[in-house]
Amino acid sequence: MVPAARSVGRPFRLRGCLSVCSGVLEERLVLMDVYVYPQDPVISALISTCIGIGGHLFFALSQNWFQRLLHPSSNRLVFYVGSRLYTECFAIVCVNGWRGPWQLLDIHSRKQCFTVLATTMVGVVALISVRGLRNVTAPPFIIVRDNVKGYFEVITMFRLSLQKSIGLYLLDCLFSVVVVGILVVFIWRGSWILVDIFLYPEDLTKSAWGSLVIGYVAVVTAFLLQPCAKYLCDKASGTSRLLISDIVNLYALFGTVNVWRGIWNLLEIYFIPDDIVLSCWITHIVSFSLLILMSCSNSLLVRGVYIDAEEPAGKCMEFPCYYFRVMFQERQLRKLRKIHMNKGTYSTYEEKPNIDKSITISVIHNIIVENSTTTS
């Protein structure tokens, strides 16, 4: 059944933008093609959709329970192992949540330019109308480190609390997962297939390399233009500010999809193409291990809903990629904390840390301070 499953699953897979992320996501998606009812693509897609929706609801409803159960203050080893198992399980849920709707769209709609463009525009217009277009972004524009604070947090669209109203919170979760999540899949699938249609459709190798080059050029350009976008958003307000934010998010999506697609197809072409299952398991074990060692395995998870231009001024145009920056700041904070503890002035340091705020945003800074205190 493996060759048949591979031929069915090929159009439905997603590749990660970074080689380690792409390896983990590819493995799960391909193995879903192989093991989840491969003889019937429709039933297989429905099963994946149910796993995706049900799993997202479970992790959203149980986030407070996970935060209480797994914390380094009680047992550091249990937290480390349990949190990484959490990431593994949640990543499987995310993969199924994307694979199911993607595959159902492939089965029930034609891969013609007009049809694909129509479904894509439906997703774009709908997300813009609810101020949720920024949820289409992914690595390399977003890197999530495995910090203690917020490790199990799942942000919903309307920011409702489970303690206030279980019914309203459940509706909030359903809207965030079913509506926003599926609209994001609409946009990603459409963007991906449009590149398939127009970029060397008869030559997969040229198409993959071309997509990779175009993607990284777009990514570098987006980061170079980030100060200009921040300046414009800082000066603009209202609809014009949202428009700038949406344009930047769409351009970031263009770069991200091409990078993901390029790495994904290159792995299919060059990495053990004759044994897809072996390729997947090797890719999964190596890639997921590297992500854990780099302390950014949470970058795999597609969770939470974020609002367009939610941050004040130009901060809404900052791409949250602070891997080395945060790492260096954590080292600086540890040194400062040690110095102030030796001087007996730690409480003053904790309230007003001596740190160059020009190299970070306040949210990241607060997380570092709290994590430094928690893990001490």
Rank of each mutant, 00 (worst) to 15 (best):
A4K: 15
S7W: 06
V8F: 08
R13T: 15
L14R: 02
R15Y: 08
G16C: 09
C17E: 09
G23L: 02
L25H: 02
E26W: 07
E26Q: 13
R28F: 12
Y35T: 12
P41Y: 03
V42T: 14
I43L: 15
I47W: 11
C50Y: 14
G52C: 08
G54V: 08
F59M: 05
F59D: 00
A60H: 03
S62G: 01
Q63K: 05
F66R: 01
P72S: 09
S73A: 14
S74W: 08
N75T: 12
R76V: 14
V78G: 02
S83M: 05
R84Q: 11
F90C: 09
N96H: 03
G97W: 02
R99Q: 13
L104Q: 05
S109Y: 02
Q112E: 03
F114A: 03
V122Y: 02
G123K: 01
I128P: 04
N135Y: 02
I143E: 09
D146N: 14
E153P: 01
M157H: 06
L168N: 13
L168C: 11
F175R: 06
V177F: 15
V178M: 04
V180K: 00
V180Q: 01
I187H: 02
G190H: 05
P201Q: 06
A208T: 08
L212A: 05
V213Y: 03
I214T: 06
G215C: 01
Y216T: 00
V220H: 03
T221H: 07
A229P: 00
K230E: 10
K230C: 14
Y231Q: 15
K235D: 07
A236S: 15
A236Y: 08
T239V: 14
L242H: 04
L243C: 06
L250Y: 00
Y251W: 06
L253A: 03
G255K: 02
R261C: 11
L267P: 04
I272W: 10
I276Q: 07
S279G: 04
W281I: 11
V286N: 07
S287H: 05
F288Q: 07
S295V: 06
N298G: 09
R303C: 01
R303L: 02
Y306N: 02
I307G: 01
A313Y: 11
A313N: 11
G314A: 09
M317R: 03
R325D: 10
E330F: 15
L333E: 14
K335D: 13
R337Y: 15
M341P: 05
G344I: 11
S347C: 09
E351P: 01
D356W: 08
H365F: 07
T373L: 10
T374E: 11
